[in-house]
Design a protein around this nucleic acid. Structure first.
Lengths: 322, 322
DNA sequence: ATGAAAGCGCTAACAA
DNA sequence: TTGTTAGCGCTTTCAT
């Protein structure tokens, strides 16, 4: 593969001039610059990133470490991060931690070693590995789940869960169950807390917690059905799939036999009949804001951490009409 | 951030020994190695990736460039690639080309510049930028869509589309429409071709082509409805969402008023009523095989290109019962 | 405006 | 087994 030296020889200039020309420095003669560019073209020259990054001590790449690539909520965040980053000249590489702290740690190390310009992270838990990022001085912004002493973009999950539950109460449901995510995951805990906030004895507490996945939803729903709830608050869209499957098996129809509201406005929620009442989170905006915070922090590393809290809104649909 | 020099000083050895110890070379005294490791730990040492990659002239990273992160088919491929790559000690960074040749080109350049060990690519079209990868000698494997003179993992889309259409014919439908993906995209063209293969005059050709997205499906379906089809073959799951929406608007019930079969067994396809007949593609296996091919090519760069064709299978469900 | 040369942090010959 | 040293390809002073 051609190096800067080859280009310099072909263009009959020094490597310094090649570097300057290709990086658009103003101090280079237009004619020379042109000669350099065509030489580079002819050789199919691609600057050696590692060498450049080593010398510059920085890269134009963000790492985005999310807990589940197969969850539309996170892919929507990815789109938001990407759009904003691209505009500012950064590329985004996506790493899937798969809700697995070990994989998260691996990817944080990769990000650190590759000296990425910044990291957007949806933390899988207490994540001791964050400490390394901090020590390395790499800018980090947490999304969806909090991370102390760090820029963050969060959603007011608790309030959203409370409102969703109040919506169920207002619709006349009296035995409202909650299918929550795994204990210890902040969004999961918050949603359960919001559910409790709303009850005030107007419904018994019927809670089950499980993994943020379809199988988790399935298990929790099977189990909770024993308590014969007349409505269900489900903590995310992957779980909702499992819950709806179980309901169908049991011959229970959403909206008629049992009210259902779930977090995340996944693309399929309007296809089912009746369509699913959801709590829509501004996923794309979360990503965009995270990228903005990262850019701001790069520009001003000493700035105190900023926490952005975005709202979620209920979209009432058929599954909660009594 | 600590460098190898700092570690060497703290451990009282040379940088060479540090490098050897940390990379697990056998030729280093266990006691020394231990001293080095604890020194590295104490300093929170993270090897400088750019420097290492520059020197080694290789990285342990694969780039996976897919055309749409929000499409479950591609995220499933991502999982397959990742699982296999991780096992072999490689990390995978995911780049979203968004069906946009310009973004694809950008990410190919990034991959090239960062000197990744290999690229898995779902090409967005003729992709002239592949030429650069080839010139750079970077191993590439194409997934889902063909790429000349290159390892490839494909699905026999044409056959699958033919079988799906035959299934519709066997079910007694006589005006079978085809909602195809964008012309020029190979999988899209193949699926339309398979549809035609099956017809033999047993149904008029009712074809519409659009983007591989929900809006594309919506447009094409609205348009095609004018030809009053009694069944529909839909080219992917994102389009299927749009198609089903339009059907619902028009008061047409899948499986009763109009038969529907779509490519991709998305998670929601069993939730709708009746559930959706689909052509299931082995997405995860596609990814895993792609990663295997990449590893094989790295081990043996001169080996002639291998093309793996995987099968897809029809899963008949309620939406095609007459 | 251009070139010469130093050096980013690491690994791999080569010596010892 | 360990250390010394050259150099990977680039950018950036410092001269000119």
């Amino acid at each position: 593969m051609a190096t800067i030296n080859d280009v310099a020889h072909l263009a009959g200039v020094s490597t310094a001039t090649v570097s300057r020309a290709l990086n658009g420095k103003s101090t280079v003669d237009p004619a020379l610059a042109e000669r350099v560019r065509s030489a580079a073209d002819e050789l199919g020259y691609q600057p050696n990133g590692p060498a450049r990054n080593l010398r510059r001590r920085e890269t134009a790449v963000f790492a985005l470490i999310i807990s589940d690539v197969e969850n539309p909520f996170f892919t929507a965040i990815a789109r938001g991060v990407e759009d904003t980053a691209q505009t500012a000249g950064y590329s985004v590489v996506l790493c899937n931690s798969d809700e697995n702290p070990e994989k998260e740690r691996r990817y944080i190390d990769v990000a650190l070693q590759e000296r990425v310009a910044g990291v957007v992270l949806s933390p899988t838990g207490a994540s001791p590995s964050i400490e390394r990022l901090r020590r390395g001085g790499t800018p980090v912004v947490a999304v969806d789940r909090p991370l102390i002493a760090c820029d963050q973009v969060l959603v007011d999950s608790r309030r959203a869960a409370r409102e969703a539950t109040e919506h169920l109460i207002a619709a006349g449901y009296t035995r409202i169950g909650c299918i929550g995510g795994p204990p210890g995951v902040r969004t999961a805990d918050d949603r359960v807390a919001g559910y409790r906030d709303a009850l005030h004895g107007r419904s018994p507490r019927l809670e089950r917690r499980a993994e943020y996945r379809t199988t988790g939803g399935r298990q929790a729903a099977r189990d909770l059905l024993a308590d014969s709830p007349d409505a269900l608050l489900v903590a995310n869209s992957s779980m909702a799939i499992g819950v709806l499957e179980v309901l169908a098996e049991a011959g229970l129809r959403p909206g008629r036999d049992v009210g259902v509201v779930a977090f995340d406005d996944a693309p399929w929620t309007t296809l089912i009949n009746p369509s699913l009442t959801v709590v829509a989170q501004p996923a794309r905006e979360i990503g965009a804001e995270a990228a903005r915070l990262l850019l701001a922090r790069i520009a001003e590393p000493a700035h105190p951490p900023v926490v952005t809290i975005l709202g979620a809104h209920l979209i009432p649909r058929g599954s909660t009409r009594h």
